[in-house]
């Protein structure tokens, strides 16, 4: 029902071409319902990421399915502290993901450095220093429900995207997407 509602809604009030808007609605609906996640679990938050995927919280019912291969996934969930030593690996994994792709920064470490902001010589202060982050989840670590809420927020973001050239959803961050084939 939801799909029919969405498409008929687009037909009634869509600002662009009727057919193109419908295709957008269809594609975004499909994309938003099965956001396969790349679990970039580096530290403590990875435990909550696992907990979110397992029976009690059950991420699968939201179509979010963790795949350890970046080439199969749509959204990278950055769970845990990113150190300077890890940064090139995270960036390379991001580049290996096919477009369109989104990034969820889970936990204070990936939002701003969190508890590791001061006095440390090896921690990247926030994943948005080198990746375009779409959704930030605060918490140290965030509860699994927070992560699930982040996916719901991400669906809203996905629903605003368009496949039409020039009408692509602009990234909320001003950071450029890294070029493919960067450093390792």
């Amino acid at each position: 029902m939801a799909l029919v509602d969405r498409i008929s809604g687009a037909l009634d009030s869509g600002p662009g071409g009727v057919i193109l808007t419908s295709v957008d609605a269809l594609i975004n609906w499909a994309r938003g319902q099965s956001l396969w996640a790349f679990p970039m679990g580096t530290a403590c938050c990875a435990m909550e990421l696992i907990a979110a995927s397992f029976s009690k919280f059950d991420f699968d019912r939201m179509g979010t399915f963790p795949r350890p291969d970046p080439r199969h996934t749509d959204v990278m969930i950055l769970a845990g502290t990113i150190t300077e030593k890890m940064r090139p690996a995270v960036r390379r994994l991001y580049e290996q993901m096919p477009d369109p792709k989104w990034v969820v920064a889970m936990g204070n470490c990936t939002v701003s450095g969190g508890i590791f902001y001061y006095d440390t010589y090896s921690v990247v202060r926030g994943a948005d220093e080198f990746l375009p982050v779409d959704v930030y989840v605060a918490g140290c670590p965030p509860r699994p429900e927070s992560l699930q809420d982040a996916i719901i927020q991400l669906r809203r973001l996905v629903a605003e995207e368009s496949i039409a050239p020039g009408r692509r959803h602009e990234q909320t961050t001003t950071l450029p997407r890294p070029k493919a084939g960067g450093d390792r």
């Binding site: 580096t42 845990g80 502290t81 006095d119 440390t120 010589y121 921690v123």
Partner: peptide
């Protein structure tokens, strides 16, 4: 190893 070296021992010296 060292991909998660966060320098906790150094941080403790200023807490």
């Amino acid at each position: 190893i060292g991909y998660l070296h966060r320098g906790i021992e150094k941080m403790a010296e200023n807490r």
